[in-house]
Computed example of a mutant assay.
Amino acid sequence: MVQVVGELLITCGVILLLFVVWELWWTNIEANSAQQAAVSQFAQDFQGPLTPPPVDAPTDFGPPTVMAAPLVPGSVFGVAYIPRFGETYSRPLVEGVGPAQLDTLGLGRYDSSTMPGGVGNFAIAGHRQTHGAVLDAIHTLVPGDRIYIQTKDGYYTYVFRNNQIVLPNRADVLLPVPTQPDATPTERFLTMTSCNPRFGAEERIIAYSVLESWQPASAGPPAAIAAQVAANQKG
């Protein structure tokens, strides 16, 4: 009897180990492949020069163009570049935050939020340790870091301000003015949400940024991400 129980415990341990390997390793491989394909497809369809504008080029392009919200969950509408996460970091932006979107394509938009460049709160979510681990390094952001968003209309540069640790039920971080239910938005925010701590889900880590500038696709990409924009188009 003792031997049987021992064998069952060993079997359960092996199954648990295999599950952990699948969750922390294989899901990342599958998701990374899907995300690279999505970024490459977006880049192939993108219309605009791949070189940054000249240093002496105009920098005031007026109010940002704000695309209409995608209607179909799972549709890829842009690419996020975060140099703090690595000079080659580029991940697709997808409509929706359900498992079908986050487990495959990475960074999903909350449908209650605005689109990139809009007044209010452009809010996105992503996994931290599985399914591509798109926000694994969210805790490394420091004030002043740039986050670049590319859509068919152009490029939006957000500047990171601060992060916050909250409980999972804190939906007020997604409000037009984060955490301020009675406020009328005048700024253009980017809010990124992920699980906290890195290997748990007891809390949420929230990263807040604000729009610094934008430039249309016809102007070319910001210099800081120009090389990666070109690399994405080459596939």
Rank of each mutant, 00 (worst) to 15 (best):
M1G: 12
V4H: 06
V4E: 12
V5E: 02
V5H: 00
L8S: 07
L8K: 11
C12T: 05
V14C: 04
L16K: 03
F19A: 13
W22R: 05
W22N: 11
E23F: 13
L24M: 11
L24E: 06
W25K: 09
W26F: 15
T27P: 04
T27D: 01
E30Q: 12
N32D: 14
A34E: 07
Q36N: 14
A37Y: 02
S40D: 07
S40N: 11
Q41A: 15
Q41I: 13
Q44N: 08
F46N: 09
F46P: 07
F46L: 11
G48M: 03
T51K: 15
P53R: 08
V55F: 13
D56E: 08
P58F: 13
P64D: 07
T65L: 11
V66D: 01
M67A: 13
V72I: 13
S75E: 15
V76N: 03
F77H: 01
P83T: 07
F85C: 08
E87G: 05
T88C: 03
Y89C: 06
R91L: 02
R91Q: 08
V94Q: 05
G98H: 00
Q101L: 02
G106Y: 04
L107H: 00
G108P: 02
R109E: 09
D111P: 11
S112V: 15
S112K: 14
G117V: 10
V119Q: 06
V119N: 03
G120A: 07
F122S: 01
I124H: 00
A125G: 04
H127M: 02
R128Q: 09
R128H: 04
R128D: 02
Q129E: 13
Q129S: 14
G132Q: 05
A133H: 04
V134L: 08
D136G: 06
H139A: 12
H139P: 00
T140E: 10
Y148H: 07
I149L: 11
Q150Y: 08
T151D: 09
T151E: 10
K152Y: 10
G154Y: 03
G154P: 03
V159K: 15
F160S: 05
L167Q: 15
P168C: 13
N169M: 13
A171E: 13
D172V: 01
L174H: 02
L174K: 12
L175Q: 15
V177E: 15
T179E: 15
P181D: 10
A183T: 05
T184Q: 14
P185E: 15
E187F: 00
L190W: 03
M192R: 07
C195T: 07
R198E: 14
R204M: 07
A207C: 10
Y208G: 00
Y208K: 12
L211Q: 05
E212V: 00
E212P: 00
S218T: 15
P221N: 01
P222N: 03
I225S: 06
I225F: 06
A226P: 04
Q228M: 11
V229I: 10
K234P: 01
